[in-house]
């Protein structure tokens, strides 16, 4: 019984952390129409940043300042935001593809650094030794698991609440206006480039929060934790839940994480021995299929956006491109 509850708490903690990431992505993609191809890098920046500042010192290793968790987390979030700001500055005024490519590049570069800069990131073996917040005070493992879940849910709730406030404010309406029609938004006196940059940085910072929680949960981080598939999982969560709907984002996170865990379990249990090396590939194909399938058949997700329905752009009908329309 305790084992069961303990497992459920573990599952819900992970799903909750991922839900925070999905909320960050929803601000970028769902509300502002920004593509983030490197979710894992911003999550990772939060994770490594928190670890470096809050972790225990190790010989020959940078970081390990044992800052109190809240401050370490803040540092990780700042790192994630900083990377987002740099990438955003360089790309957000350009065609949307540049942001997609640059963020994808950030993820690749981030992985390179985590794998190779041993003095900084511990290389492939990663960084371990993180004083988990209040662990000593609570002591009991089972109770701590529940406590941590509670903490994650509180943060999730806070992020959700904050984002709801944000997107229903005039600011949120301005973001959506830019997403729908940049020219019109500009003519209303909005500065699209600045609003986009802000949205992108805030969304990435939220992903950084999730990364910090992740590190505190495992007291360990390595490049393995930041596999590129994380980006795809988070997208699948958002598109299944419904881009532009924060409740959908949270729902999608729990659903997809459940499906992912269950499929992993089923494959490891029932797939023949010879296939065991390839269960990952099968799961990846499933995620890819979920993404493509949703886009083809239910692009609005399970819980569609309610405030404004996107109208299909004229360009779609008039031809594949609108440039040079005569």
């Amino acid at each position: 019984m305790i084992g069961m509850i303990s497992y459920l708490a573990f599952f819900a903690t992970m799903a909750g952390i991922l839900a925070i990431v999905v909320l960050g992505l929803n601000l970028q993609w769902g509300y502002t129409g920004l593509f983030n191809g490197g979710v894992v890098a911003f999550f990772g920046a939060g994770a490594y940043g928190t670890m470096l500042l809050g972790g225990r010192p190790e010989l020959g290793q940078f970081g390990g300042y044992e800052w109190p968790f809240v401050f370490a987390l803040a540092g990780g979030v700042v790192l994630a935001a900083l990377i987002a700001w740099i990438v955003g500055m360089l790309t957000l005024r350009l065609r949307h593809d540049y942001l997609a490519i640059a963020t994808f590049g950030v993820a690749v570069a981030f992985e390179s650094v985590t794998r190779n800069a041993e003095w900084l990131t511990g290389g492939a073996k990663g960084l371990r030794g993180f004083p988990r917040p209040l662990e000593a005070a609570i002591g009991n493992n089972f109770a701590y698991g529940l406590f941590f879940l509670g903490m994650v849910l509180v943060v999730l709730g806070a992020v959700y609440w904050g984002l709801q406030r944000l997107v229903h404010s005039p600011y949120g309406r301005a973001l959506r206006a830019i997403r729908e029609d940049e020219t019109a938004a500009r003519s209303l006196g909005k500065n699209p480039a600045r609003l986009r940059l802000q949205s992108f940085v805030i969304g990435s910072a939220i992903m950084g929060v999730a990364g910090g929680l992740y590190v505190a949960f495992y007291a360990f981080v390595s490049p393995q934790d930041l596999a590129p598939i994380l980006t795809f999982q988070v997208w699948a969560m958002l598109i299944v839940g419904g881009a532009g709907n924060n409740r959908g984002a949270v729902l999608g996170a729990f659903l997809i994480w459940g499906a992912w865990t269950a499929s992993g379990f089923a494959l490891s249990k029932f797939a023949p021995q010879a296939m065991q090396l390839y269960t990952g590939s099968i799961q990846y194909i499933l995620i890819g299929t979920v993404i493509v399938g949703m886009l083809l058949w239910r692009p609005q997700g399970l819980l569609p956006e309610r405030i404004v329905t996107r109208f299909t752009k004229t360009a779609a009908k008039a031809g594949p491109t609108s440039k040079g329309a005569i």
Partner: peptide, 18 residues
Amino acid sequence: AKADALSMVFASFGVALI
């Protein structure tokens, strides 16, 4: 035929994974 360019980028990632 029915969505914006962003959905295409998104779909292309899914196709690549598959």
